[in-house]
Amino acid sequence: MKKWVVLVLAMLASPGLVHAELKVFACEAEWAELAKQLGGDQVKVESATTGLQDVHYIQARPSLIARVRSADLVVCTGADLEASWLPLLLRKANNRDVLPGQPGFLAASKFVTLLEKPEVLDRAAGDIHPFGNPHIQLDPRNIGLVAAELAKRLQALDSAHADTYAARYADFKGRWDSAVDGWATRLQTLQGARLVTYHRSWVYLFAWAGLVEAGTLEPKPGVPPSSSYLSELLARLKGQEILGIVHASYQDSRPSEWLSERTDIPVLLLPHTVGSTPQVTDLFSMFEILVSTLEGAAR
């Protein structure tokens, strides 16, 4: 009986024991992609969420608990974006190496400047994020800042391959910075363009590209659009020149379509992370598609 139990446990445990690579658990697909870019063959990356999921509303599923248990590095946005599931996941996973404060835990939002820190914390204003807006990945310069820190962590956790990580980072950084300059130049003609969004998740893009948010489909952050509120928004938008209604793949498309039909403002499906549409295969194609969609709308 005892032998049998030991055997079963050994079998179950074996996939975890024979790993050579560094195991990275990313809360969001953009950080998973960044870890792949910087880690290459040395890392095994898993993402807790896909581009089709709303990262505010994830449950601490058994599969996620199991993956955090075996992770060497957890990379998340932080700033309370994952407040309803990440702390629980970390407590259930019994993995002391990836707790906040350890080298194995990286909160991306700590390494960028957060926008929209609320002055008043009152849930009557919706499900606001007390530390500031956490949707930081939509300013490509933030991706560069997080990449620098992520490269450092990979080197620290897997010092045997430190040189490889340093070289991969230098290569990525060069390509990324020149791509960001290119996108910024192309977006210059769009300065001041007004857009409607669903959730206040595009503020970093808007701040970087000089775009203006003309309204949101959600009456308040986290509160789904209601028909009375949408009618109000419709009235408010009358006569304004709006470039588009920004839609993300994980959101309900009906409110955007409803507004579009009544205003002739086009719905723009913008990638908010990697994998949000089949075409968005990495961080470069994410911003390339984002910029070209905006350019297309302006033409």
């Binding site: 975890g16 608990i65 248990r69 075996s70 259930k92």
Partner: peptide, 12 residues
Amino acid sequence: LRWLAPTDLMLE
């Protein structure tokens, strides 16, 4: 006392 196995399937 709880133990979480280091497996891909969650076993607790």
